[in-house]
C-alpha cells in the first residue's frame, strides 16, 4: 500500500517523511527518525513510556497515528535538551531543570520510564507550576515505573517545580 508524504514538526524542526497510514507516531519517531529517547513499553496506552507532547499536551505516542500528527507541534525528550543531543555530550551541557532534578534526586534507576516521566512532569508543571504531592502523583497517573517506587520521582518533580517557579 502507498505511503503518504507528510511533514512532522518535531522539536522545532520540520521532517518530511513518507509513512504508511497505520504507523504510530511512536514507530515513526523511533524507527524512521531514530529519535529513540521516546520509549515503547506496552503499546496500549497503559505505561506512559511513550509519552510525548502534541501541541503541549501529553499524549501516548503508541496510540497516536503519525499521519494525524501532521500540523501539530511535537515535543519529545530530545527537545528538552537540544544542545546535549546535538553534541552527544552529556557532561558539560545544559539539561532541562526537570532532567537535572531527576538526576540530583536519584529518580532514575534503569531509566526506561524516565523520558515518559519527564514529559508528563513537563505537562504537569505547565498546568500546575507549584503542585502539591497529591497533584504530582495524579499528574503521573499515566506513567509506570518498575524500579524507583515513585517516591524519588515525586521528590524530583517537587524540586524541579521549586527551581522553575520558586515559591520562596
Amino acid at each position: 500500500m502507498k505511503k503518504e508524504l507528510i511533514t512532522l514538526n518535531i522539536n522545532g524542526d520540520d521532517h518530511e517523511i513518507a509513512v504508511h497510514p497505520w504507523r504510530t507516531l511512536n514507530e515513526v519517531l523511533r524507527d524512521q527518525l531514530h529519535l529513540t529517547g521516546t520509549k515503547l513499553g506496552c503499546g496500549t496506552g497503559d505505561c506512559g513510556a511513550c509519552t510525548v507532547l502534541l501541541d503541549d499536551q501529553s499524549v501516548s505516542s503508541c496510540l497516536t497515528l503519525a499521519i494525524e500528527s501532521e500540523g501539530h507541534k511535537i515535543t519529545t525528550i530530545e527537545g528538552l535538551a537540544p544542545e546535549a543531543v546535538a553534541n552527544s555530550n552529556l557532561e558539560n551541557c545544559e539539561l532541562n531543570p526537570i532532567q537535572e532534578s531527576f538526576i540530583a534526586k536519584g529518580a532514575i534507576q534503569c531509566g526506561f520510564c524516565t523520558p515518559g516521566m519527564i514529559m508528563s512532569s513537563k505537562f504537569l508543571l505547565e498546568q500546575t507550576p507549584n503542585p502539591n504531592e497529591d497533584e504530582i502523583r495524579a499528574g503521573l497517573s499515566g506513567n509506570l515505573c518498575r524500579c524507583t517506587g515513585y517516591n524519588k520521582i515525586v521528590e524530583a518533580i517537587a524540586d524541579a517545580a521549586e527551581k522553575i517557579s520558586p515559591t520562596k
Binding site: G45, G48, T51, L54, Q57, S58, V59, S60, L63, T64, S120, F123, L124, A138, G139, S141, G142
Partner: peptide
Amino acid sequence: TATVQIRNM
C-alpha cells in the same frame, strides 16, 4: 476516566 495522557486524547 483513565490517565492524564488518555484524557488528553
